[in-house]
Design a protein around this nucleic acid. Sequence first.
DNA 1: GGCGGTATTTGATAATTGTCAAATTTATTG
DNA 2: CAATAAATTTGACAATTATCAAATACCGCC
Lengths: 187, 187
Amino acid sequence: MEELARYLKNYYHLSAAAYDALSACFEEKIFAKNDYLLKEGKICRHLYFLKQGALRGYYNADGKAITHWFGFEDNFVTSFYSFITEKPAVENLQFIEGSIVYAISKERLNGLFNQYHEIERLVRIVYEQYYIRLEERYVNAQFKTAAELYHNLLEQSPHIIGRVPLGYISSYLGITQETLSRIRKPR
Amino acid sequence: MEELARYLKNYYHLSAAAYDALSACFEEKIFAKNDYLLKEGKICRHLYFLKQGALRGYYNADGKAITHWFGFEDNFVTSFYSFITEKPAVENLQFIEGSIVYAISKERLNGLFNQYHEIERLVRIVYEQYYIRLEERYVNAQFKTAAELYHNLLEQSPHIIGRVPLGYISSYLGITQETLSRIRKPR
DNA sequence: GGCGGTATTTGATAATTGTCAAATTTATTG
DNA sequence: CAATAAATTTGACAATTATCAAATACCGCC
């Protein structure tokens, strides 16, 4: 776990003591591709650090799965809505690659918040980052045509394309698979 | 300011000491309708508590002002993107009613974070709430037709309609003013 | 290498929403 | 209470994207 230690210390300026306390609460879990981290209807009571792999969040709408979010290694992930509100999740979190996560319960995390101000700060920063990304996506979705959305994604998040089935990407962009296919076509 | 004290203490469980420190940093400002709290290109270095009134955030896209957000009394407001990243804002914050705000600089806020863990917690909770709201809007925007968006807004946020010009609402919903007008029409 | 299933592409058509221009209603102000 | 400006509605039409159905490409696996 040394790598993680370095990462958290550098990226979030976590002290050794706070890191030790945090990592002592982590439970390592291994998942296969297509496994679920969370199913809709369940309350998400954990924050996860995705050590390796990738996952998606998707909603079921009219029997169709609509992917609205991707998570990749070295990020904190959870169903923020459910985790924050403690209401049942309306989304599913499914691994799209074999993955390793470190889980920490909200209960334990709240305990750490009280002991280590820095850890609450870390989580504040995680929220900030997610807020920013969500806002960017929201603004893009409202202002851009389907083609622009795709080309922006190509530019800004090339790691997503090629690693994720196009059907997931199309719903992520808010368009149908057919429209995405046509956009990708050499014109 | 007693009202504010009660509000923050009840809503965010702020101690008297932390509240005093926070409110001591507040600068009261009064704005007229159509005044700007922030113009695009400027870095937003303050968090604001909107004591009274209402404002909107809008982007300029193709010469058109697209409202993407509303803020009402008793909420913390800012240009989160700019405030968090310390990059120039791409949006404008404009009052849509005469308003009173209490301003606190990011610098002072960071100072308070170090003195009062509770205040950092308060801000974390503010971010949580904004995240949740943004996610709801994002999901709505992707899944709903224009008519559904409007009727949802009518149900969930009736205070917005009637208090805000329809042109702002239409762009908030991601549709044109004409489309909104047709949706509102008795069919 | 061939099989079966999934993912992606293609085609034809329909639905939704946007655009532009103008009319009308509503609000503001001297 | 005009007079003017601003906000909202209406109409005709175009563009974009969705839908449905089917074809093709791709992949893991025996």
